[in-house]
Computed example of a mutant assay.
Amino acid sequence: MASTSADKKAERRSRFEAAWNVIRDELVEHLKGEGMPADAQEWFKKNLDWNVPGGKLNRGMSVVDTVEILKARSLTEEEYFKAAILGWCVELLQAYFLVADDMMDQSITRRGQPCWYRVESVGNIAINDSFMLEAAIYWLLKKHFRTEPCYVDLLELFHETTYQTEMGQLIDLITAPEDSVDLSKFSLEKHRLIVVYKTAFYSFYLPVALAMYLAGVPPSYVPAAAPHAAAVSPYKIALDILLPLGEYFQVQDDFLDYSQPPELLGKIGTDIIDNKCSWCINTALAKVTPEQRAVLDASYGRKDAEKEQQVKKIFKEVGVEKAYEEYEEAVVGKIRKMIEAVPEGTKEGELKRQVFTSFLEKIYKRSK
């Protein structure tokens, strides 16, 4: 009986999760080798398992998928494990951000369970735990990639991406604190900056660039299919496509938070009551009358279901849904043209359009 795409997706996830068990045990064993007591080892293991493997794992698995696309063949066991390590390093980075972010936002739950800092006896120890999640990345890179030609590139990429994400978080925190609503600080340009720096670099460019380094894609090359053409800069091409793709993903996320019912979205949308600098509020602010603006000023970011409905009513009145449809078609058309302009690689070590089309196919017209 032929396996379905759902079966294949489940198999991919299962194989990727099996690699996590090995990586997690390596990290805990390292603590043991450092002479850390049994309770510290157990604490670290719980920190790792609570915070790292529970999400969709799209970022981490994208590293493996992209290496396979670039090599145009199935990976050997060793190649798969190395790609999976880098994928799990991305998931460790995500966990580090989320543990800290949940404390900053005083969030209650994450992935259907209590946020780590709210787990019994954790509290502010979560600050140190987040540091340990980040430090684990660099221990894994040193252990598994120290002798690889791309080692320094991998280190620099993780450091740069972490800094970029923290810049995005800073803009977000000072623009839209939950306890102080000031819509005059909002704008579509501010939203774009937050999205690109807080999400697009680490969620889209990082997994692909890691895979490119691992697959041996050089900083520049003359495409084999066009030997008389000018040299291309594959990492610049990837960045130029993946940042708009990441921005589109987040705009889509913002719109779904407002428009999708919880049973379809899989969670309750809270951007309005949490004073998020989302695409929807910024789009509305550019279209409202003075009277509508007064309603938004009085109602946005309030922990009040009635005021939330008043905000949604204004969103409908100014045509946020139509604006989103127009935005989506325009941005997807632009991204497709950029992908079509990529010189199609014909040999290992050259960029392939499928790297980008695979991302776009997963995102376009998604409903959750």
Rank of each mutant, 00 (worst) to 15 (best):
Q106V: 14
I108R: 12
D101Y: 08
A95Q: 07
Y96D: 05
V90Q: 10
Q106W: 03
D101A: 02
C89R: 04
A100T: 13
Q94V: 05
E79V: 07
L92N: 07
K71N: 13
L92Q: 13
Q106I: 06
V90D: 08
E77I: 09
A83H: 14
Y117L: 02
I108K: 14
D101W: 03
R73K: 15
Q94M: 08
D101G: 06
A95T: 03
I85C: 11
M103Y: 02
G112S: 05
F97V: 09
L86E: 03
Q113L: 14
A83L: 13
E78G: 13
Q106A: 13
W116V: 00
I85G: 09
V90N: 08
Q113C: 04
D105L: 03
Q106G: 02
R73L: 08
A83K: 11
A83Y: 12
S107V: 00
L86W: 09
L70F: 00
K71H: 04
S74E: 15
W116Y: 03
T76H: 07
A72M: 14
Y117P: 01
Q106F: 02
F81W: 09
W116P: 02
E91F: 00
F97G: 06
L86I: 09
S107R: 00
D101Q: 06
A83D: 13
G112W: 06
Y117F: 15
R73P: 08
M104K: 01
S74A: 14
T76C: 09
G112L: 08
L98S: 03
K82C: 12
E77T: 15
R111N: 10
E79D: 08
D102L: 02
Q106D: 14
K71P: 01
F97E: 07
C115A: 14
R73D: 09
T109V: 14
S107L: 00
L75V: 11
I108G: 03
L98Y: 01
E79H: 07
R110M: 05
A72L: 11
Q113F: 07
L86F: 11
R111M: 08
C115H: 01
F81K: 12
A100C: 07
S107Y: 01
C115S: 12
V99D: 03
I108V: 14
A83R: 13
Y117S: 05
E91S: 00
F97H: 06
D101S: 05
V99A: 09
M103G: 03
V99M: 06
E77W: 08
W116A: 01
L86C: 11
S74H: 14
L75Q: 09
W88Q: 10
L75N: 06
C89L: 07
W88V: 11
F97T: 04
S74F: 11
L93Q: 12
E79K: 05
E78K: 15
I108E: 14
